[in-house]
Design a protein around this nucleic acid. Structure first.
Lengths: 253, 253
DNA sequence: GCGGGCCGACTTGTATACAAACGCTGCCGT
DNA sequence: ACGGCAGCGTTTGTATACAAGTCGGCCCGC
């Protein structure tokens, strides 16, 4: 694979997973040395990240990882609603019934995925990714797909920002099931509206984990216990900390 | 200004204006020589064009100007509908009444701009651009704005592809007026729907100038005369011709 | 005669060297 | 003591040199 592409995917992954938090400086020489490539392919990678909005120019000419405030999340969901409702509408128009009926069934069984095992919910999120991919394919709209692909990186970053509790995930699974059912029924209006419903609920959940730092009520870990939030993650109260760049990965010196 | 940015804007303009038609090869060395810069900034420019979808990889690793078939136009408008209806909705929610009332009035008077003078309709299209900018500002949604900005290049390219007759432009002006009125009224639903109406009408017009090469009926140049279509433009029947790269611009040897 | 493989030229991908611009620090003047 | 300015250092922007891969054509063998 080309060096520029390899570095692009690696940096993108680090940004999405918050290993490179907002505000982290993306110095060309430093990153080039870190990934064992020259500045030329690295610049290309940074250019793509910048075009995607994952990196922005800082104070000087320095490129930094873009911020992600609560306001940014709101604005991001405004775009997301536009794109995903349209994708759902087109998928409902053109999609294959069996595909989405099967996905709906798997979402109906999704609570089985949310047991104590798999604390990262990898199986659940893989299922969500499958639905996204199926919608993209069914929509069959290249320009829309391109925009959605760029959007997904930001969405994934938000996912890591917010705390997902099992209760929310169960509700989300049902929202996804409704979307899949509507698409399978070729019901364009319902598919779009079900998508909008899901996005609004998702946004409300994300914002609730951001605005209420002490511990707003709602639901606990598994039962209705008003337990504490924000357990495993490195905690991001102001969301935009200056950020430490982290040391080199597993490359040779 | 930076060389890479200058070349990027120049190439983008050439692509949008069909001076570089679909299929035209964007050889690095050739274009670098043509614009009097090195390959490094030129590669950055090509990277941005590629990220925008204005350039795609051809058969080898050669980059060519992206095609724009009737099917592409349909797909483009699927994205456009998603983005612009949302922008209109948000603008209606947040926009300033006076601004859009004034724009509506100017669109009401738009037929005055469509006289025999100004055959390129620069004044009219400038007004449309003003409305677009006002909607973008009022929507105040950075992620959405970014996507819209990228989209506009493709839309501008389509505009040059289609033949705009005064009759269609008068109708379009009224559609724009309705959008501006709805935004001024803070009517989100109507603003989005008026935008959708305009886009569907616009798409239908564009496709009518593509699918019916001989001369479908509808309306003539100014009256109801069933005149001939396709007058001034270089004529693009298969839309995707191999394209001649055109000679160098006004740069020193 | 036709197919496969080799060779060559041209393209892009990468590395490095050079230049310019910006920020920062320290000093000097008021 | 504070503000401004100048010099320096570090950063990005650009150019060029080198490497690698690929496409096309040609030749040879079957």
């Amino acid at each position: 694979m080309r060096a520029s592409e390899r570095v692009y995917h690696a940096l993108r992954e680090e940004i999405v997973t918050w290993h490179l938090p907002p505000g982290a400086e993306l110095s060309e020489v430093e990153q080039a040395a870190r990934w064992g490539v020259s500045r030329t392919p690295l610049r290309e990678a940074l250019g793509r990240l910048s075009a995607e909005g994952l990196a922005v120019v800082g104070k000087g000419r320095t490129l930094v990882v873009s911020a992600l405030s609560a306001e940014d999340v709101r604005h991001l969901f405004e775009l997301r609603e536009a794109l995903e409702t349209q994708a759902a509408r087109l998928a409902a128009r053109r999609g294959d019934v069996a595909t989405f009926r099967a996905l709906a069934a798997r979402f109906a069984a999704a609570p089985d995925l949310l047991g104590p095992a798999d604390p990262e919910r990898l199986a659940y999120y893989a299922l969500v990714a499958e639905l996204d991919a199926a919608v993209d394919d069914a929509a069959a709209s290249p320009y829309l797909r391109r925009s959605l692909t760029a959007l997904r990186a930001h969405v994934a970053r938000v996912r890591r920002l917010a705390q997902d509790n099992p209760d929310r995930l169960r509700r989300a699974a049902d929202e996804h099931r409704l979307i899949a059912e509507a698409v399978a029924d070729h019901d364009e209006v319902l598919a779009a509206q079900a998508t909008a419903v899901h996005l609004r609920a998702s946004l409300a959940h994300v914002l609730s984990t951001l605005d209420g730092p002490p511990g707003t009520p709602s639901a606990g870990p598994s039962a209705t216990t008003p337990g504490t939030r924000r357990a495993t993650r490195p905690a991001a109260p102001p969301v935009t900390q200056p950020a430490t760049p982290l040391d080199t990965p597993g490359d040779r010196p």
